[in-house]
Simulated scan of single mutants.
Amino acid sequence: MIFEELELPGLFRLLPEPHADERGFFARTHCESEFAERGLVGRFAQSSVSFNHRRGTVRGMHFSKPPHAETKLVRCTAGAIHDAVIDLRPGSPTYRRSLSVTLSAANRHALYIPAGLAHGFQTLSDDTEILYMIDRPFVASAADGVRWDDPAFDLTWPEPVSIIAARDLAFPDWTGR
């Protein structure tokens, strides 16, 4: 695996290193010891799947409040997504900055998202599926989010929104929290 550190501290894009032969290829997508060598969380307590029927669907921007803040490893297993994060760590030099990458079944990249970042995505194709590995059990009372179009952040989305949950539309402005 190749760990590519991105502009937000602790955020990594992971690229598989395929070993190919006449059958196809084999590539490692997670190794606890390789994560630990870099000081990253490498043990995950839960795996979840998000399936989305329509292109343009937005989910996010979600996070869990401390002490239940989650580290996630996200991979698109079918279709493609515009994956976005916002740094909500108050002491971070990149506080309130966002970053987006394309994850797809074709590029097989993953995104390692440290605790303290809000996460969301927009589907770039119909019938898109995303695999989440999460380092701790979900605590519903800690679940929170910021609006996908909150002017406090520099988020841009590549497509018109086709579907978004009422919950995601109802998050309050970040300013003043």
Rank of each mutant, 00 (worst) to 15 (best):
F171V: 05
R55V: 08
D127P: 01
R59C: 00
D83L: 01
H53R: 14
A105Q: 10
G145P: 01
T77W: 06
S141T: 11
R108A: 06
A165H: 07
R54T: 06
G79N: 02
R59K: 07
W157K: 07
E22W: 13
R97V: 02
H62L: 06
V41F: 02
L169K: 15
P90I: 02
P114E: 03
F12Y: 15
Q46W: 03
A143T: 03
R108L: 04
E32K: 14
F153G: 02
S162G: 11
F51M: 13
G10A: 12
D150E: 10
R167H: 14
E4T: 15
P114Y: 00
L169M: 15
P160F: 11
R147I: 07
I164E: 04
N52L: 01
F138D: 09
P18F: 12
S47G: 09
S64Q: 13
I134V: 13
L8R: 03
V146I: 12
M133T: 08
M133A: 13
P66G: 08
R147Q: 05
F26N: 09
T156M: 08
D154L: 08
R89G: 04
L40W: 03
T128V: 05
L117G: 00
A106Q: 15
Y112I: 01
T77C: 08
G60Q: 01
A143Q: 09
I163G: 13
I130K: 01
C31S: 14
I163F: 14
T57E: 01
R147W: 03
H19V: 15
R55S: 03
I86D: 00
P18Y: 09
F51N: 12
T123C: 05
S48P: 03
A84N: 07
P16F: 05
I113H: 02
D21F: 07
H62C: 03
M133D: 10
S64R: 06
R75W: 00
A27F: 08
I2E: 15
A115C: 09
A115E: 08
W157C: 10
F51Q: 13
S104A: 08
L117Y: 05
F138A: 09
Q122E: 04
R55C: 06
K65P: 05
P9H: 11
A110Y: 00
P151H: 09
E7W: 12
W174H: 12
A78H: 09
Y112A: 02
E4R: 15
R13S: 13
F121Q: 00
A45F: 03
I113W: 02
P9R: 11
G56L: 04
R96A: 11
E129L: 05
G176I: 05
R147M: 07
A78E: 11
V41N: 01
D21G: 14
M1W: 08
S141L: 12
S98N: 06
S50H: 04
V139E: 15
F35D: 01
F121W: 06
I130Q: 02
A166P: 08
R38I: 06
S162N: 10
F35C: 10
W148K: 03
A170V: 09
L124D: 00
W174A: 13
W174G: 03
